[in-house]
Design a protein around this nucleic acid. Sequence first.
DNA 1: CGAGTTTGACCGGCGC
DNA 2: GCGCCGGTCAAACTCG
Length: 323
Amino acid sequence: MMMMMDKRDEETMEEPAAEIPLPFSARSPSTFPPPRGTFLDAYGADRGFLELIGLQELHQSSFLLQQPPARATCVASAPQVEAESSDAVNFPANPSSMSCSSTEAGANPTKPATAGEANEQEAEPKESCKEGGGKKKKKGQKPQKEPRFAFETRSEVDYLDDGYRWRKYGQKAVKNSPFPRSYYRCTSATCGVKKRVERSSDDPAVVVTTYEGQHNHPSPVVPRGAHHAPPPPPPLLPAEPFMPPPLGFVLSPPVNTKEFQLPLLSSYLAPPPLDFNRSAAARILVVTSDLTASIEGRNQTAESAIRDYGLLQDLIPSEIRKE
DNA sequence: CGAGTTTGACCGGCGC
DNA sequence: GCGCCGGTCAAACTCG
């Protein structure tokens, strides 16, 4: 459902939506110096979402704003949530905008996830379940949802290195898709963040990575394969009690670097050195427990854009936005 | 030897 | 109620 975005028309959101608690509390750019030096300059300035994700290169800054509002692209199916889930990103209540839900749906274009599906995993429920000794989730208790973010990336490789260490705990064949879905969990004992990686059946070149939860710790190590990157600079944003680095990723082998670069995101996401040089074309889907915003500039309405921007804003440090 | 991956089995939710 | 399917567990295995 979501369409791939064309590099060209994306809308930007000028101002970030109100602060939205992001799943990956990403504000702290605990990141390193912008790879190409431009990040910082971008920092602070509100730029289009796309910029955040690195599209800026393709488009001049603010190009997004110029775009006429388009229809929101969201996957809808929103489970009930939202309001309740404290964790969920609080999108500004913007009726007109999309608040779509269903993480999966967003994540996997080919198959919409059921609300239940989307929701169930989010919470840290499992923790309770598994750790509790029991195997699976307890019945009756609905796990709380955690925000999810899905990234669609054009990459030859499935694994996106985001600076965190992940442990694969499962792989399953996905119905209607020739590609298996892999499940990863943050190796940090106290961190319940999970991510799923799968290829889109519609477009094998597209890798959909869905993050769930927030890291409650700094990025532990330099991602494997991450190339030497400059040491992380001091946090740009002051005063945040705890700013876990957001998710991010580094795409290994590049695929369409020109089309879409996700570099920024990655940096933002992963404080550690992420190598965006190798980034592949990507699209970001912000998926919260309830909402899935497909961040495809051109498909979004201004409002949605704004909203997204807010989300991403947290996610992506402005520094990253510029590559 | 520890950490991570693989893989079959198990469990729960959901639709029919 | 049954079967399908997604998600997770955990033993076995691999790798550094």
